[in-house]
Design a protein around this nucleic acid. Structure first.
Length: 260
DNA sequence: ATTGTGGCCTGCCCGC
DNA sequence: TGCGGGCAGGCCACAA
């Protein structure tokens, strides 16, 4: 599912859409357009204009435009970006393999004949105009130790719930959360505020490595823990049977032996 | 405020 | 063979 690594891929792909004149917008699914974005407004904003930059904050892709408004794209868990027929990620976990044209929820056509399409079978993503980004925490790819410390400080919530909270840290999803906690030897159930300064430093170090590894390997499902996140799965480090817990409303797999 | 829960959406997979 | 229920999780509304 699109977490930081996937959306960063999409951003890189979207850079290929920058500077090209938009000829038309095809957004047949009104439900997919959020917060005042509707087909007429979106067309008015984009047609005859061009994107000037592709940015990313957490899991949110931001496309700046000539005319000023910013197009925000969220991908939910099955959304992908397709630019000129090239899909951002080959295969998303939990997403169907076949293709249905109805899943193209929002398409921007360029005067040169190319296009940028948001494809989302399950419609959990969406397109917004001028999205409010003030509620997003520091991006997980560039967060500092001090920022990470503040993100978990004085909280009774489970550590993993805090890491998944996009207003605290932007970009960490369920799979990446499990991976970084597993590598950092920290239990997802620990009260976030109980994490010591040295543990915060360790968590920060591993977060950086996980982001780099997953970007390098091409997806949030490419972590070392991933294939073991299943009933009967064992910790690849010490062989203990992994425990499944629901944390922050999400399924978590973790090692009861080395994650404390 | 903080923290937890349920629902949204849809397709897939399992068991009957 | 078909069918129904459970599941996946990013994000949001809502409750305590």
């Amino acid at each position: 599912m699109p977490e930081l690594p996937e959306v960063e891929r999409y951003r890189q792909l979207a850079e290929g859409a920058v500077g090209r004149t938009v000829s038309s917008v095809d957004a047949p699914d009104r439900w997919f357009l959020k917060e005042g974005a509707d087909p007429v407004v979106l067309a008015a904003v984009l047609e005859g204009q061009a994107f000037t930059a592709a940015r990313r904050i957490g899991k949110l892709l931001l496309m700046d435009t000539d005319s000023g408004p910013v197009v925000g794209i969220r991908f939910g868990m099955t959304g992908t970006l397709v630019v000129d027929g090239h899909q951002g990620v080959d295969q998303l976990l939990y997403a169907p393999r076949r293709h249905d044209p109805a899943w193209d929820r929002c398409a921007v056509h360029f005067a040169d004949g190319g296009s940028m399409v948001v494809r989302d079978p399950r419609r959990l993503g969406g397109v917004t105009l001028d999205p409010d980004v003030s509620g997003l925490g520091p991006d997980a790819a560039s967060i500092t130790v001090a920022e990470l410390g503040r993100a978990v400080a004085r909280s009774q919530a489970p550590l993993k719930a805090r890491l998944l909270d996009q207003s605290r840290v932007a970009g960490i999803g369920n799979l990446m959360g499990d991976e970084v906690l597993w590598r950092a030897d920290l239990s997802p159930l620990r009260p976030a505020g109980s994490v010591s300064p040295s543990e915060v430093r360790r968590l920060h170090r591993h977060l950086g490595r996980v982001v780099a590894d997953l970007l390098d390997r091409g997806g949030s499902h490419q972590g070392d823990l991933m294939e073991h996140r299943r009933p009967g799965g064992r910790c690849p480090r010490d062989g203990a049977e992994l425990v499944r817990s629901t944390v922050g409303g999400r399924t978590s797999w973790w090692c009861p032996v080395h994650q404390g």
